[in-house]
């Protein structure tokens, strides 16, 4: 049986079991290794992908239930202006260490910046309740999200002026 997924704007075919967790199919069948296999229980956030616009723990999604959904992985966020702004802020804040949690962090925070553009440290931390980082102690990640929020508001204001 062949399954078909709409990922990052294109159809991807795979022959994994319908009950296989989505993150393993992304990694093992489709070579999209930006979604990390860390806890397999939805606690750590390292495997997050967008399913129809919202970040979802891919490890808890049987691949068959992702058919028909619009899937965007971290690889597909590369051209997203909000994600770009966030990733630039992460670099500016010197936030990255081992890096394993960051694709998931970017997934969660991109969504937060889009749905809650006027964010603050407390909101960012609340949004990160399902994203575990073992290296950084979080604060720079939070700073980066707040910096990106400001940058995006400023960019929007400029657009309006222009």
């Amino acid at each position: 049986m062949i399954g078909q997924l709409w990922i990052n704007g294109e159809w991807c075919r795979h022959d994994a079991d319908p009950a296989a967790p989505l993150h393993r199919v992304l990694r093992e069948n489709l070579g999209l290794t930006g979604s990390k296999d860390v806890c397999g229980e939805g606690f750590c956030g390292a495997c997050l992908v967008q399913l129809d616009g919202a970040p979802i723990a891919a490890c808890l999604v049987p691949v068959a239930l992702a058919e028909g959904a619009q899937i965007v992985t971290i690889e597909g966020l590369d051209q997203d202006p909000v994600a770009q702004s966030l990733m630039a802020a992460m670099e500016a804040e010197d936030a990255v260490q081992c890096g394993m949690c960051f694709p998931g962090m970017v997934m969660t925070l991109t969504h937060l910046l889009k749905t809650c553009p006027t964010t603050d440290r407390e909101k960012v931390k609340r949004a990160l309740a399902g994203n575990i980082c073992r290296c950084t102690g979080y604060e720079r990640i939070v700073s980066a999200a707040c910096r990106a929020a400001k940058d995006l508001v400023a960019a929007d204001a400029q657009k309006v002026v222009a």
Binding site: R27, T33, K36, E75, M90, D94, P103
Partner: peptide, 23 residues
């Protein structure tokens, strides 16, 4: 001096051993 591995790590491009191992 900023770290040079941050750009790829943020984008999920960095290949860790577990990423090489899965295929």
């Amino acid at each position: 001096f900023a770290r040079r591995d941050a750009f790829d790590k943020l984008r999920g491009r960095t290949r860790y051993t577990v990423d090489e191992a899965c295929q």
